[in-house]
Every structure is written in structure tokens, then in C-alpha cells.
Design a binder for these strands. Sequence first.
DNA 1: CCTACCAATCTGGTAGGTCCAGATTGGTAT
DNA 2: ATACCAATCTGGACCTACCAGATTGGTAGG
Lengths: 249, 249
Amino acid sequence: MTVPQQASEGSRAVKRTIEFIRHHRLQKGDRLPSERELSDRFGVTRSSVREALAVLDALRLTERRPKSGIFLRNALEDSGLDSLVIQANLDLPFDERTMRDVSEARVIFETHAIRLACARRTDADLNRLRELVANYADRVQAELNVANEDVEFHLAMAAASQNAIIVRTLTPLFLMSFQWRQKYFSSPVIRRRSLADHQEFVATIADRDETRAAALVQKHVHSAFDEVRAMAEGNEQPESHNQWEGQDQ
Amino acid sequence: MTVPQQASEGSRAVKRTIEFIRHHRLQKGDRLPSERELSDRFGVTRSSVREALAVLDALRLTERRPKSGIFLRNALEDSGLDSLVIQANLDLPFDERTMRDVSEARVIFETHAIRLACARRTDADLNRLRELVANYADRVQAELNVANEDVEFHLAMAAASQNAIIVRTLTPLFLMSFQWRQKYFSSPVIRRRSLADHQEFVATIADRDETRAAALVQKHVHSAFDEVRAMAEGNEQPESHNQWEGQDQ
DNA sequence: CCTACCAATCTGGTAGGTCCAGATTGGTAT
DNA sequence: ATACCAATCTGGACCTACCAGATTGGTAGG
């Protein structure tokens, strides 16, 4: 995956802007301060602010009206899925509701993905999945973290559905959870359990057994989310309202 | 929806860069020319190029390695869904396979959305849907285009699922088809047929009739895509490989 | 007092320049 | 063939300047 570099000023400006929107509770249609004022506030150049605004525009969060101002196009919660990845990378917190929705959506999307994979998977898909599981097993044996390999495997299953849009939909849902995925897979017990599931996934896809595959998705994803939830509640400071905040690793 | 402004240099730089990647058939891991060279090629300032690269970074298409270069992180087809919206807004074409996948994904996602909507919709959701249909009916009566209203209605149905992630997933799938949606709804016959479907949607959601609702989604979406496909093939120049290219309106 | 109008001001868009420090690279000396 | 070092290239950030249209506030006219 990506090596966590230090955030550039441009990215910091994105973070500051999102925090500004949050803090001032700006709503759809509200106007942001001018680029010049934002650059003053944030202590960066207008160039950096403009870079950030270009990103927020791309995410459909803001709209820059020439000679007029910067306006909020959507509430933070209405932007595209890619903004979740960016928020996660910037260590911005998610609320409980978002995490619940992500969990539910992932089950729905991945269930369909694996159903399609059972129906349409090619031998090449199957071989790739077997390779990935073998590699996964090696790493589990070597007591290594498999957070990245887990994402790789799940995306490979999705790819076997032969529908690139489904893959592109699931990708951000995985990437946004990179932080706590790392924590989740720090447990050897969990790694072994996960490996067993993956092996079963491959078997069901090989047999084109949609029903068993779909059931397995439910179990696999739900248990993962339950586990993470439990971990978060265990480590949680009592006064923290948000157990899903990204953690530095 | 959004008024199509003239593209800024920053957006043009995005377009030029994507075209560059396409034209030179760059693959994952390949290196792009330096910012300075791109700004020369495109005839814009480095600032504009940097704005564009910030966007492509956010879309997970490129990766900027400080003091090293710009590298392709993903193939164009592996980026997030939001990039589809941007490509559509820049009048960049989609290939047939993407459109097929979008159609399939939309049916899957929206079917689940409406199932959840049947189970969970509140009275407020229902009222909003009725309002939207009433407005829709007025516009059909007045022989007005209902492209935007159609999106609004479908997103409102998705919102009734009480899962924001599903809404955020469907949104780009609608927005990317803004161009030909406009054409599709230029036909009064289609507008009337669509209105009838929407009225039936509301009825099924009111009755919480999941089965009928799901069946209706299949019919509604498939017929729409078939229609658009037929329209595109009809107007198509024989040598065009791509009938999904965005059209100016 | 209200309205119409106009000029100063503010805004985003773009250009062009500078400096920095680390990565890359190619040639040189060993 | 290898080790090393200096010139070069790269992205990151800052700064100033200009443009033209949108906005706005005050003024003149009704």
C-alpha cells in the first residue's frame, strides 16, 4: 500500500478546510471565506489553498464561482466515497453512523460481488486467488501483518465478478479503514481465523457455490466489524465520543 | 444540477493529463513527465498543472513523489467512482464495458437501496418522495425536461434506505450519465413512462412491498439503458467506436 | 424615503518568478 | 568493475502581479 509520507501543505490545507467546514457547521450553499483569507488563516500560500480547493471541487464538496466566492455544494456527508479515503488519510474522524453504514454497504456490495464471482470467475481469477491465499498463509506463518494482503484478496474476489464498477466501489470502503485494519490484523489469532475464511472463500468460488459464498461474506465481514468495534470500545478513553478516529501506527 | 461553466485552466489541465495518460497508454507504475514539462506541453502554468495533479492524486490516479516524479498509481479504470463524474464533465468518453458495468452496478445497488427503503422508510421519506413525484408530474405536464428531477427522485429513494453510503455510491453513477440523461428525457413519451414508474415506486415503498419494488427497479433501469443504447446506436457515426461520449447540449 | 446608478473593492483565475532540499544521474577516479 | 561525488532535475512552497467580472456601498436623482 502507500507509505505514509508527511502530509504536504496542499493536503494540510485540505484538512484545515474540512475542519473549518466542520467547526463552523457550514451547510450546503454556505459560503467559505475567500482564498486569500483562508491562506491567511491557515498560514499557507494561496497556491496551497487553491490546490486544496481543487481537490474539494473534485470531491464535489465545494464549488468555486469565478469572481464570486467558494460555496459548499454538499454537506460533508454527501460527497463521494473517495472523500472518505482522503479523510481517513488525514486522520479525520468518522462518526458512528458512517461506520455502521459502511459496514452494511460493504456486506451488501461484497455479497453481490462474490455471487457474480461464483457465476463468472475465470480460471485465471481462481489461480490468482489461490496465489494470494498462499502468500497470505506464508505471512500468517511468519507472524507478519496481513492488512494489505487482506485488501488485495478481497479486491481480487471482487475483480472475479468481472464488474470493474463494483471493484471501484469497494476499493474506497477498504482504503478508508486502513488505519484500524492495521490494528485488527495485529492479532495472530485473528490472522489465522481470517486465513481460514479466505481459504473457504476460494473453495466456494471454485465450486461456484453462491449460497455458501454469500453466507460466508456475512459472517466474515460482520465478525470483523464486531471485533474492531470491541477493540475500539476496549481501548477507548471514556470521554471520547468517537472510537473510529484514525490512529497513527 | 450544475450549470456547465467553461472549464478553468486547472480543469483543462486535468483533461489534458488524462488524455496524455490515455494517448501514451501509460500503465500502473509508469512515470509522467515532470510538472515543468507538462506545463510546457499544455501551455499553462505550473500552478495549473499542480492543481490538476492534486485532483488526480485525490482520485488515486497519480502519486507525486517529492524530488522524484509523478507516477501512475492506478490504471484509469481502477480509480474511484468520482473520477467517472469528472471524466463525464470533461466530455471524456467512456468505453462500452464501463457503461455495461455501470448499468449492472446501478441495478444491483439500487435494488438493495429500495429493499432497505421499503423496510425502513419513514413517513417523512414518503412525503418527500410524493412531493418530488408531484413536481415531476407538473414538469411532464408542462413538457419540460426532467433529467435533474429524475436524479433527485432516485437519490431520494436511496436516502429512504437510511444508509448514506449507498446514496453516496449511487450519486456518481447518476452524475456521470448527466449528458445522455438529458437526451433520454427529451422525449415526452419517455417522460410519461418514467413518471408512471416513479408513481409505482412510491406506491410500492408506501406498501413496503419489497418484491414488487425490486422487480420494478430491474425493469425501470434496464429499459432506460436499453433505450439510451438504442438512441446512441441510431445516431452513431459508423466509424465511431464509442457511442457513450458526452454530448454538448 | 425609495430607487437607480456608478465607481471602488473584492473575488477567483492565471501567469511567472524564486528558493529549497533531496533524489537522480552520469562521469570520474580508484 | 566499482565506489564516489558533483551537476542536474524534481516536487514543494512562497511571493507578486495582473485581469475581468461580480459584488457592494454610497451617491445622485426621483
